[in-house]
Design a binder for these strands. Sequence first.
DNA 1: CCCTTTATGCGTACCTCATACGCAAAACCT
DNA 2: AGGTTTTGCGTATGAGGTACGCATAAAGGG
Lengths: 227, 227
Amino acid sequence: MKRGRKPTIDAADITRAAIAVADAEGLAAVSMARVAQEMGNATMALYRHVKSKDELLTLMADAAFDEPPALPDGEWRDKLGAWARAMLGGIRRRPWFLQIPMSGPPTGPKSLAWFDSALGALEGTPLEAGEKVGVVMGLMTFVHGEAWLSVALTKGFENDPAQFSREYGQRLREIVDPRRMPALAKIVAAGVFDVDDLFDADDVAADFDFGLHLFLEGVATHIGGRA
Amino acid sequence: MKRGRKPTIDAADITRAAIAVADAEGLAAVSMARVAQEMGNATMALYRHVKSKDELLTLMADAAFDEPPALPDGEWRDKLGAWARAMLGGIRRRPWFLQIPMSGPPTGPKSLAWFDSALGALEGTPLEAGEKVGVVMGLMTFVHGEAWLSVALTKGFENDPAQFSREYGQRLREIVDPRRMPALAKIVAAGVFDVDDLFDADDVAADFDFGLHLFLEGVATHIGGRA
DNA sequence: CCCTTTATGCGTACCTCATACGCAAAACCT
DNA sequence: AGGTTTTGCGTATGAGGTACGCATAAAGGG
């Protein structure tokens, strides 16, 4: 038998509590004291199961995602599209995920399962193994970037909605000198930014779809040139 | 004339000092006290010119980049490619840029200049104003995501190089169950991860180029369908 | 059944930071 | 010079991460 007093909590419990706090109040609210309070323990009790706050953050990142979803039948393109949207959804559900620094290549079971899922979508295409990896990495990268942008803008919007109203287009008209920035000036003049809500959720989704479309289009062309 | 004591420093000085600290010791080392010491002032003196640390961070983000580079003559594709590579280079030179949370749509002169530069590359294409914005946003997003990944991996690599050696491929062979992750298992078996240095700088650059190629290919197809 | 061994729970204390507040020095105005 | 305004900055407060050490609980040995 194991000697010594029995542990009443373990790292998984702490991770769960920390995630609960992050979900409810954001990653900034995750302090050792706050997490301990969440579980009804003393602050320093946590350090018996977790070396440091950094380690706790890594554990949180590992546990943040659900299993990858089942992909629809059909073309690789539909599958990858669904995969990308699911990943975006996952990040949006836990936006604090983006603030946790990565410390190495993926080894967690969840990350690998997602990786596998995307690679599976490319089964049946004439791409070489290395190319498949490249395509999936590129897509991950795009989704990650898009999520980051959208999360950042969401936060900004919550802090100061006025920034995203027609005020922004107006402001640009004042700042942008047509001589120094001719291309931007044309876009501003065309009224692209003259909308009531620059951060309309549907627009953000449409932007994502557009970028995703472009990327997948590129993959299709690449596959075409190979077949 | 202005009344009152003359300021001995201004926000730009503080921003410069903060950037010097971040360049030398990372963003984590940027505290108000550390920045003040860097300039030979007292900590609280900074608050006369900067409302909060958050504001300082925003100023830093604005000042982190150089002016956008002159783009090569030729096709929009070459121009956008050069632009994306320049942006990646800029982020790599100041990796801490990625850790600064965005608080709204871009209004800084530098950000706008970069935006204008990319839009200028699309001049002459039959895209509508809104589509140009979409393309540029998508590309920015991709570059940002790629930079984030590469910076994160660089840090991980510095902390523990062994993680990125052949050990990784070996580890995957053990972890990946061909029944649960068939697609990944195939890739692993194909030896894609069996390289001495998974994080070879040239490989990372090649990955970026591949993803960039795919994205631009997609834009080309989209333009083709429009003309 | 008591004593030693071992591991946990956690109170105390220290250090680093961001920042509110207030006073004194400096520069302008009359 | 005296008043006014603005800057420089010392002090103080409160939050957060974590080293340290003691008390407590559980298991094994006699």
